Computed example of a mutant assay.
Amino acid sequence: MHFIESGAGTPLVLLHAFPVDARMWDPVRGRLDDQLRVITPDQRGLGESALDGSSARGLAEPGANRRAAEQPSIARAAADILALLDQLELPRVVLGGCSMGGYVAMALLRAAPQRVAGLLLVDTKAVADNDEQRANRLKVADRAEHEGTKGWLAESSLPNLLGRTTHEQRPEVVSSVREMIDAQPADGVAWAQRAMAGRPDSTATLRSYDGPALVVVGEEDALTPPENARELADALHGGELVTLPGVGHLSSVEAPDAFADAVRSWIARIA
């Protein structure tokens, strides 16, 4: 699994959204790593991580991508992160995830709650997909495998991925996110969509967690709007909620200063 780390102090693992990669955390890295050890992996099949779980796409074994793609699951993605924590000899971390990264964080919490010292959920939700959402994910997976991802995936994702204010006032952010989406491998996109389509409801997992938790949501998030974030915070015993104005689904990219301020303040209180 490919990852980037910087800084020192409390380890903070940040899991990226779909359909981007760990670069979505770059705008906040320099705002956090003077206080924290920031670790940002590319999840299986996306960014620079190979679909078979090896460190980089170019190192995948022959036929491994096909075998890995046969068993997509969020639980497997969470197991990748646990293996990374073992590799880095980190018994406990503050674990954060945005959107799909949040699904993986909740799966890791379900599998190994003792490894989670604090939980950061960003623009995500605990409930499973309904039938229509699941069918749409499978259609995207099939199209990616048959057509690749260049162009159409960004065009279909960007309208809801970024907030209205970003589309109107931050063209450089729109361009940067478009480039990230266009760079994602088709097999990784398909794997991730099928994994998300099959994920379970994680509400009970959140209710069983008694550690500190922060929920961050963009006020303009059309995919997982503020009412979803309130449900997450209410399900968590120690849940706090921060809503960022003028921000859509990718808070760390759209408003890095506000996002970093919220995270730094929270971690300073729980450290």
Rank of each mutant, 00 (worst) to 15 (best):
A77Y: 05
A186C: 13
D123K: 03
A268E: 15
K125Q: 14
L84E: 07
A50T: 03
N136G: 12
R164A: 11
A17P: 12
V174H: 08
T165S: 15
L214P: 06
P11A: 10
L232D: 08
V122R: 00
A126N: 08
L59M: 12
W152S: 05
P171L: 04
S175P: 00
V116N: 01
A107C: 11
A68W: 06
D42Q: 07
D26W: 12
T203A: 02
R57M: 06
D123I: 06
Q114R: 08
L153G: 12
Y103N: 09
R92W: 02
V253P: 02
V216D: 00
A192D: 02
K125P: 04
L121N: 02
D257H: 09
R57Q: 10
Q43V: 08
A186R: 10
M100F: 14
L59H: 11
A262L: 07
R207W: 03
L206D: 06
R37H: 15
G211T: 07
P62G: 13
D234A: 11
A17Y: 07
L51M: 05
L95E: 12
L250Y: 09
L46K: 04
G148W: 04
P62R: 14
V173L: 11
D123P: 09
V217C: 09
G63Q: 04
E179L: 14
V116Y: 03
Q35E: 13
L236T: 07
D52H: 06
A135E: 15
E219H: 13
R92C: 01
C98K: 00
V216A: 01
D142R: 09
L84Y: 08
L85K: 12
S55A: 14
V216R: 00
E240Q: 14
A77I: 05
S55D: 12
Q133S: 03
E254K: 03
R115A: 03
E231V: 10
R164G: 04
